[in-house]
Computed example of a mutant assay.
Amino acid sequence: MPVPDVETALDPAIAARLKRTPDGLVAAIVQEHGTGDVLMLGWMDDEALHRTLTTGRATYWSRSRGEYWVKGETSGHHQHVRGVSLDCDGDALLVTVVQTGAACHNGTHTCFTDDLLTEGQ
């Protein structure tokens, strides 16, 4: 589902640096503050990023449901934002959070639980 055409209060200087997908999204890699664990990948549009930056609560765009969601709003597994960084190309965000409970929707600490072997391992 495409993101809605909403007016956002995201700082124009930040918005100008973002390189979005054709759907208007930027990948948000979520890392746990303190441990450095990579927890999940979410998607943000300008409004989700604005909400994240101004509320301190990780807010994403759900591509499957076609709506904004605040991590932990229904599960209680909150993400309290400690920092947000933009990568050098402007096409990915690193969101550093204090994670309460599981980060993954399947109940695990991280979504990255399936190790794939490469040749030579």
Rank of each mutant, 00 (worst) to 15 (best):
R20V: 13
V26R: 04
D11K: 04
D23N: 08
D5Q: 04
D23Y: 10
L49E: 04
R20I: 06
V38P: 00
L53W: 14
Q31D: 14
L39F: 02
V6W: 13
A16F: 10
D45K: 08
T8V: 09
A27H: 02
A48H: 11
M44R: 06
V3Y: 03
R51K: 13
P12T: 10
L41S: 08
Q31V: 14
I29G: 01
I29N: 07
L49C: 03
D46G: 05
T35G: 02
T52H: 15
D23E: 14
L49M: 06
E7C: 00
D23Q: 14
G36K: 00
T55C: 06
V26I: 15
P12W: 13
A9S: 11
A13H: 11
P22C: 12
K19E: 15
A48L: 07
D23S: 11
V3M: 08
T35P: 01
E47R: 00
W43A: 07
L39A: 01
G34E: 09
R20K: 15
L25N: 06
V26W: 04
D37N: 06
H50D: 15
E47T: 10
Q31E: 15
V30F: 03
G42A: 15
L49A: 05
A13T: 13
L41F: 09
T54H: 12
P12Y: 11
L39R: 00
R17K: 12
P12V: 07
P4S: 09
L41M: 12
G36W: 02
V30M: 08
G36T: 02
R17N: 03
V38Y: 11
P22H: 08
I29F: 05
P12E: 14
P4M: 10
L18H: 12
E47S: 02
D37P: 00
I14N: 08
M44D: 09
P4N: 13
H50N: 15
L39M: 00
L18P: 05
V3N: 05
I29S: 09
G42H: 05
L25K: 06
